[in-house]
Amino acid sequence: MDYFLQQVINGLQIGFVYALIALGYTMVYGVVGLINFAHGDVFMVGAFIGLYAIGKYHLPLFAVFLLATIGCAVLAVVMERVAYRPLRQAPRIASLITAIGVSLFLEYFTALNQVFGPNFYSFPRPFAVSSWGPGDISLTNIQAIIFLVTLSCLGALQFIVRRTRVGRAMRAVSFDPVTAGLVGVDVNRVISITFGLGAALAGVGGVLYGIAYPQVNTFMGVMPGLKAFTAAVLGGIGSIPGAVLGALIMGQSETLASAYLSSTYRDGIAFVILIGVLLLRPTGILGAAKTEKV
């Protein structure tokens, strides 16, 4: 039982990181209907900003998060402006291929020796690891930080989306971009903000991931990105609580699969669950069922 509870805690740790990434996918999809394949690489850039800020400049943790947030948000806004906006009226597949192109570019460009380099780099721990808890169950301070930071990010996001003008504009664009534009919402600005907000969360996620699994590489974003996107689909894409729920399921299934089956099956199990859920609920757990109009 202790072992099980310990695995659940470990599952929450990775699940919360997935949640931070999944939110960006779900928000962007909700607003522009694009699978932003480059989002996982924004997460990677966040981790590298953390690597440099902690390892080279020894900044305090708070400043590291701030830097990663701003850096990733700027990157995503530029990306949207340069690559996605010109294609908004084009067939959807064109933006999708462009997203894949941007993703490959970020991975291989940062892997050049002149940028970050192609190797695995160990991520410095900004503080000593300690743990506490009853019996065999333990909660490390890393896990505590992940839980606290993620929950406060979620709170902040929920506040922005539900309680502010910008949030209301985002919901309006997501509901119907043309009408939102007609009633005076600056659609382009809202889309930029959405990209920036999602990327900021991914940046925080990147730093947390680096602290928890202290090795970074320019291709580290691929798998977490795919899994986080899957989590968003699992929960019902476009839905913010759905993304978090999906990410937590993803984290649990993955951790429990490697604990009780074999770690080699870890990457597969989450997708088996995904396909199972989609067969029962074709629009995800919390996704709204779409009725087709003729």
Binding site: A83, L87, A90, A94, T98, G101, Y108
Partner: peptide, 15 residues
């Protein structure tokens, strides 16, 4: 290594 930097750029520009 520049191969995979050039190709995505080509891809994005083409799209």
């Amino acid at each position: 290594e520049f191969r995979w930097v050039l190709i995505p750029i080509l891809l994005v520009v083409t799209m």
